[in-house]
Structures are given as structure tokens and as C-alpha cells.
Design a protein around this nucleic acid. Structure first.
Lengths: 331, 331
DNA sequence: TCGAATTATCTCAGCGCTAACATTTTTCCC
DNA sequence: GGGAAAAATGTTAGCGCTGAGATAATTCGA
């Protein structure tokens, strides 16, 4: 009843175990006739190699450890989609962990993923506990840190400069003649990159001699509902602003919904600006003005670079997948 | 340089390897003093157990194989989120594969996931290749088939009856006085459950002596953009319908966007009805009337039931997570 | 036609852990 | 205070595979 092993295949094909192993891994010299015989035996027995055994013997595995902060924010499933796309056609399997934005949880996930001797570990951002950083540094697996390139990575960083994205938002709005600019955001503890964009925005405004007119930050994670409520609240305090930058598109779409409900003309009375370039923002009656962060490309690029080389870069490598302003019609 | 092993811990703590192993797995009798000594040694060495070795020795692993048809449809990341929620606090790790709605790919994913001797395999729907079904049946791992309960599962099915959901949509619209009902959908090959809902809808209408007035199906996957275009096309052909059922919320939100752009009064001129109960539908100026499918609960429930028992059910078990009509304001 | 390459295959010792069972130590009750 | 049960730890034999190196078979040029 227990599944067939290499030995079963070997004896059926009348070769040594090692030969079967070599056929499977397509390694070394194999006579065509032997290969055929082995493959037939494999098929006949329905043999499936035991990865644990292989992994133990070779002290390496075809696992890619992936650590994401959240599954609730659509951005991360999209990164994951990119990772999958990069993995397609290879025999690597992603093993996923979710931290809920908790660095301690990240640390323990790193430890348990490392226990599988993965080929690479992909995680998010530059912030890790000291222990986590040490584990990653001491191991020899490749390490990708995604989303953010405003720091020196352990091995490879792929993403964009959120600071620069914030500055770009400022420049865009200033260029369009907006001067009384507000900000609606969500919790920065959970999302340092949103904070970086905020800092970039403020800096961009300052360079033009402006300051943020008003801001409103919610406690929870970003969501359309939160954005809707937060904009309403902001406007109740500051009726004279002419543009609002949101921490991301979820919040911005919520803001747009508020404007529709409250019959505020967008962008004539109030301009709206997001971040991410989510599909939903582009489906609004007036497509959202926002910054396209290429989540899919980030995931895909990271995987491709990590798999291209099994050794770590001697110098940490930083890859900027960039961003682009989606003009839209709301700002 | 190579990482410490059980043996290193054992000699440092001056106990046998087996004792260390028992401390780690919290199994059998351990004197408190010994446990403390071992844990200190583990900490001092930064020991991380090699899962591959453990898995090989015990011929089982703490891996949960998860096979999803797609990452692009928000529904599946949400199921995955539920799975993660169910896994939180356990030491199980999900290993993810994506089929792109290709049953052959599912088959090969099942095979490679099985190679890790996972504790369970979670996949979607009831459709599998003969070989895939055989592999799952022959293995002893627990198997969860998600989303759909209109079939006899291998071991456990968790989801809802899409047929019944379709019927409910029909009853809801009929109850509201709509009689000329159209349908806008996406590709059924990729999404059998959408087809089941369609069949339920048609059946529900027939029971009231009605038929579908008009329908329009796109080729690709569902999306807001596709829904927007498809409704426009449908209305260009059939101007007299008073309600449209969409294959899901993505499509329905797109339809709503079309109505806004074309200034069609919803629901006065045209009622809209979706499926899934996505957040975005509920954020529209008029919340979308739809059916709430509990994706998160499906994932979470499945994991909990699978982990509750390491043996398969003698009788396949079917768990109906149900659905509920979100009244909304669009139908 | 023979030796050196080249090609094809085999042998065997682990990889690091766990299961099963054996053994020793401690507890505890009559 | 002696013996059985309970508690604590040790011993041993793999799990199924791969890597390194040895060996055998084949090719090929001079």
C-alpha cells in the first residue's frame, strides 16, 4: 500500500537506484534505451519521488519561502501572482507565510522556512528583527527583499522608491495648480512604505514652498470603507482644500465614493490622488489619478533574479522596477 | 559553517539525540531540568531542526498543499487568507500551486505536492483528471475540495451550492417584480461554478414560468472592465430588459460603472445583481445587490476540519458554508 | 589492434531525524 | 523496604534519496 520508492523502480527497470535517480534529475550520462526503460517503470508504478529524502540527501530543496505581511491587501496577492509567474515552468514550489505586519512573526517564519533548506527566501521590506537578519545573513540561501529599495538589502532588493513616489505625487499636483493639499492615510505602523510616500510628499511640497494643509489618518489597515469615512471626516474639518493625496488606491477609491455620495465635483472641487494603480481605480467613472506600482513585476523579477544564480551576490543588488504616474481624471 | 544538528545539541546538553528530539516535539516524558538544559543548548547553537530529515523519518510533514485555479481573481486570495487563518498558531505551512484553470496542471501539482508527504491537500472544485483523482484516492493524505458542494467529494468538500445560489438569485429578482431578466457572464470553461449558478438561475426562472430574455458572455476571465463592456453590448441588443444577473461581482461592478457612464438609473431603469459579495460592490454609491459567498470561511473551515483529524473520513463529508443574499440597492 | 577517452552504470556511505523498543531511574504504596 | 508502576532516558535501525568515486562497456584514432 505504501508508495513505491526508487528501489522499486530500479528493480523493475533492472538498473541501480542511482541510475534511476539520474534519469529523474536528468544528470550525467544515460543510454537512451535505459532512460526509456526507467521512465516506463516509473509510469507503471506511478512512482513519485520523495522530496524530503531528496532534500535531505542533497541538503537543498526546490522550495521558495515567501513571507508576506498580509493577504488582505490586494497588493500582496499580486506580488504572489508575480512570484508564481516567475516560478511557472520551473519545479520550484512556493511555501507561504503571513506575518500580519508582525516582525516577531516574520522572524519565526524565517526560522521555520529555513528549516526546509529552501533555495531562496522572499520577504517584504527592509525591516527585520535583529535575530531574523542574523539568520538570513548566516544562511546561504538567496534572499529577496521586496517592494522597497530605499535601503541596503541583505542580498537582493526589488521594488521602487516610495520616497520618490511621494515626491512625484507632490510634483504632479503642484504642476496641475493645486496648492491646498490634504492627506488621507491609514496606519503607518503596519505599512512603513505608506509612511515613506508621505515623507516624500511632504518633502516635495516643501521644495515648492508648500505644506500639507490638513491630514487624517485612520488606525486600521487601508480599505475603501476607511477611505470613504476618513475623507468625510477630513472635509468636515477643512473645507478649503483643493486636492487630497491618499495613502493608496483603496483609500482613494473610498474617497471617490464619498465625493459621489456627497456630490462633490471631482476634480473641479476636489482632486483625488492615489497610489498603486489598482484596476478598480481605473474602472471608476473618472479613472483615478494615481501612481502605478508594478507589484506583479516586482514578484516576477525577484524570482527570476534569485533563481538565475544560486549564489548570493557579493555586493547586494538593488533593482528598481520603477513606477509611473497614471494621469487619470481625478487630479 | 554548516548548521548545527540534533547531534550537536545532544552532545552540548549531554543527553541522547532522541531526548533532544522529544523535547523539540514535546512528546513523551522529559524531566524539567533536562528540558531546560536542552532548550538552552538549542538557543546557544541557534539550532533549527531540519524538516526534510524529520519528514523523511516520520514519513509525514507539516505541509498543507494548496492548489488554486488563479491568483488574479480576488476570491482565491481570500480563500487563501482563510486557510492561513485556520493555520495560524499551528506549525503547518501551506505550499501553494496555481493551475490557471488547467486540469493537467492541477494533476502535475498534485503529484509534486504529494511528493512532500503533506498532511493535507486542498484543491478547488470537483473536476480533476482521472489520474489526479486516482493519486488523491490512493494516497492517505486528507483531501479538501473547496468552493463547490454539488458533488461527492473524495474526502471533504467545503463550500456552497452554486446551483442553489443561482436559483436564489432568480427568486430574489422575481420577488421584486422583475420579469425581463438578462445575463452577463464570463468564460464558463474557466469557471464551472459560474456555469452552475447560471443553470440555477435559468431553472429558477423556469419554475416561475420565465426565461432569460437575453445573455452575453465574454471569452476571457471576469473583470470589471469586461463587465462594463459586456453590459454595454447586451443593452445595445436588448433595450427592454429590466434586470441583469452577472456571473459575479467583478462583472457586476463593471456593469454598474457602465450604467453610471451611460446615465442609466439603477435600479429604476435597470436592476443589477452580482455574486460573491466583494467589498468593492458594497462601496458603490448604491451597494450592489448580490449573494455573499463566504470565501474566508470556506478556507478556514476546510483547514480546521482537515487538521482536526489525520485520518480520512470513512464517508466523504460535505460542509455547506452557505450563502446569503445581500439586499443592496441595485436590485 | 590496443590503449586512452568517452560513455554508461554501479557501489556504498551517509544526509538528520524519528519510531520502536530497551534500559535505567524514580516514585509510591502496602 | 521491596516490588511494581511510572517516569526518564538511551540504543538502534532505518526513512528514500544523492554524491563521490569506482567500475564496466563502448568508441575511436593511430
Amino acid at each position: 500500500m505504501s508508495s513505491p520508492t526508487l528501489a522499486d523502480v530500479a528493480s523493475l527497470a533492472d538498473v541501480s537506484e542511482n541510475t534511476v535517480s539520474r534519469v529523474i534529475r536528468d544528470k550525467g550520462y544515460i543510454a537512451p534505451a535505459t532512460r526509456k526503460r526507467v521512465n516506463e517503470a516509473i509510469r507503471k508504478l506511478g512512482y513519485v519521488p520523495n522530496r524530503a529524502a531528496g532534500s535531505l540527501a542533497s541538503s537543498s530543496s526546490a522550495i521558495i519561502g515567501v513571507i508576506l505581511p498580509s493577504m488582505s491587501n490586494i497588493v500582496f496577492p499580486e506580488v504572489l501572482r508575480g512570484i508564481h509567474a516567475g516560478l511557472a515552468g520551473t519545479h520550484y514550489q512556493p511555501m507561504i507565510g503571513v506575518t500580519d505586519y508582525d516582525l516577531k512573526k516574520e522572524e519565526s517564519l524565517i526560522s521555520s522556512l529555513l528549516a526546509w533548506k529552501p533555495a531562496a527566501i522572499i520577504t517584504t521590506g527592509c525591516e527585520h528583527t535583529a535575530a531574523a537578519r542574523r539568520m538570513l545573513k548566516n544562511s546561504t540561501v538567496r534572499v529577496g527583499e521586496l517592494m522597497d529599495i530605499d535601503h541596503r538589502p541583505i542580498d537582493l532588493a526589488v521594488g521602487l522608491s516610495h520616497l520618490e513616489a511621494g515626491r512625484s505625487a507632490a510634483r504632479h499636483l503642484i504642476g496641475r495648480g493645486y496648492a491646498k493639499i490634504g492627506y488621507v492615510g491609514h496606519d503607518w505602523n503596519a505599512d512603513k512604505r505608506a509612511h515613506a510616500r508621505y515623507l516624500g510628499l511632504v518633502e516635495g511640497l516643501r521644495q515648492a514652498g508648500l505644506v500639507l494643509s490638513e491630514e487624517n489618518r485612520t488606525n486600521g489597515p487601508s480599505s475603501t470603507l476607511a477611505g470613504k469615512a476618513a475623507l468625510a471626516e477630513l472635509l468636515s474639518r477643512a473645507k478649503t482644500i483643493d486636492a487630497v493625496v491618499f495613502s493608496n488606491d483603496d483609500m482613494a477609491v473610498g474617497g471617490y465614493m464619498h465625493c459621489m455620495a456627497a456630490e462633490i465635483a471631482v476634480p473641479e472641487t476636489l482632486a483625488l490622488f492615489g497610489f498603486n494603480g489598482l484596476e478598480i481605480g481605473q474602472t471608476l467613472p473618472k479613472p483615478l489619478s494615481t501612481i502605478l506600482s508594478n507589484r506583479f513585476a516586482i514578484g516576477k523579477t525577484a524570482v527570476e533574479l534569485l533563481l538565475a544564480n544560486s549564489e548570493r551576490n557579493k555586493k547586494p543588488q538593488i533593482v528598481d522596477t520603477g513606477f509611473s504616474i497614471l494621469e487619470g481624471s481625478t487630479a
